[in-house]
């Protein structure tokens, strides 16, 4: 993979970031309601003060100038002040972000660990009993909305069996090994909900990717050389079949973030997803904008990583 390819990919991400910022700003600018709406109706504030305030914050500037101001502020990390949490938005988000990334990372890992073996085995014997069962389970898996799976797991494992706690505590009192045990116990359900949902849709991707590769001539060649079926599958088929799957995992990221918001909300995991919901419910606009912007930036980052990985795994792409 040449440095030029890396550079080109990074440069290509900039217009996307720009585009997303335009979309976000447009939504914000089109929204009804005026940040100074309360001032306008307050008889104690003279009109001249109102006009001066509006001028100071640039509310009467043309849209594109407001956009540039807004973008500059966002890029400088000046994301505003949360009136509910009494702190700067960027600090608040940075506090919550690691939890979200940990939950998403762990659940993606779980999804991949489930989906690859099942998808490959299903594709190795298409329309066999195993394949049909796996396919049906996959359908059930991604038809079960994450919010319902979450509630079901709570009902079974927290209420009926009393095995797992259903409220995530960020300030566990235990220390040492016990801390790890508690942390894992309370993370099992959020990660399982998100991971199995992702895994279910990934199984079908893996299966069709393997089916695409398994009929290629080089696989037949490998078989005719007398290499065992297992070895052909693992060494020759899976390696190539997983290349498009890498991209698909990254392209699924927007969906994963959606799932993470719901999961965090159900299990009260203190990540940016539950922060988004609570800010919406308490009308904390700067936080809502900030979190949405972070989600958008993360999506672009993962797309970029996928592109780079793709070029690394498949050199034919990089030199085109």
């Amino acid at each position: 993979m040449s440095p030029a390819y890396v550079l080109r990919r990074i440069l290509l991400a900039i217009p996307s970031l720009f585009g997303i910022s335009v979309v976000l700003f447009t939504v914000l600018a089109l929204a009804p309601g005026d940040p100074f709406g309360e001032l306008m109706t307050n008889p104690n504030v003279p009109a001249s003060v109102q006009l001066a305030l509006r001028a100071k914050f640039g509310l009467d500037d043309p849209v594109y100038i407001r956009y540039v101001h807004w973008l500059m502020a966002m890029l400088h990390g000046d994301w505003g002040f949360s009136f509910v949490s009494r702190m700067n938005v960027d600090i608040l988000i940075m506090q919550r972000l690691p939890v979200t990334l940990a939950v998403i990372g762990a659940s993606q890992l779980l999804a991949v660990l489930v989906a690859i073996p099942v998808g490959v085995l299903g594709a190795a014997r298409p329309y066999s009993l195993f394949d049909q069962i796996a396919n049906t389970l996959a359908f059930i898996g991604f038809s079960l909305p994450t919010f319902f799976t979450g509630l079901l797991l709570i009902m079974v494992f927290s209420i009926r069996l009393e095995w797992l706690p259903f409220v995530f505590q960020s300030d566990l009192s235990s220390t040492g090994w016990q801390w790890w045990v508690d942390e894992i116990r309370q993370s099992i359900m959020p990660i399982a909900v998100l991971g199995l949902f992702q895994g279910a849709s990934l199984v079908r991707f893996v299966r069709s990717a393997v089916l695409d590769v398994i009929r290629l001539d080089y696989v037949t060649t490998a078989r005719s050389k007398g290499i065992g079926e297992r070895r052909v599958l693992v060494r020759h088929v899976v390696r190539n079949a997983l290349i498009p799957v890498v991209t698909l995992v990254a392209l699924q990221m927007p969906v994963v973030f959606g799932g993470a918001i719901i999961t965090e909300q159900i299990f009260r995991v203190p990540g940016i997803g539950s922060l988004l919901i609570s800010s919406i419910l308490s009308n904390d606009t700067p936080v809502v904008m900030g979190v949405t912007f972070v989600f958008a930036g993360l999506v672009i980052l993962f797309n970029l990583i996928a592109d780079l990985l793709y070029g690394f795994l498949d050199p034919r792409i990089a030199f085109r």
Binding site: G33, P254, V288, V299
Partner: peptide, 18 residues
Amino acid sequence: LFLSLPQLPLLLLVIYLF
């Protein structure tokens, strides 16, 4: 571009604002 928008956050944002 639309494919790479985070859908649920944006959905929530639009509903919240409008």
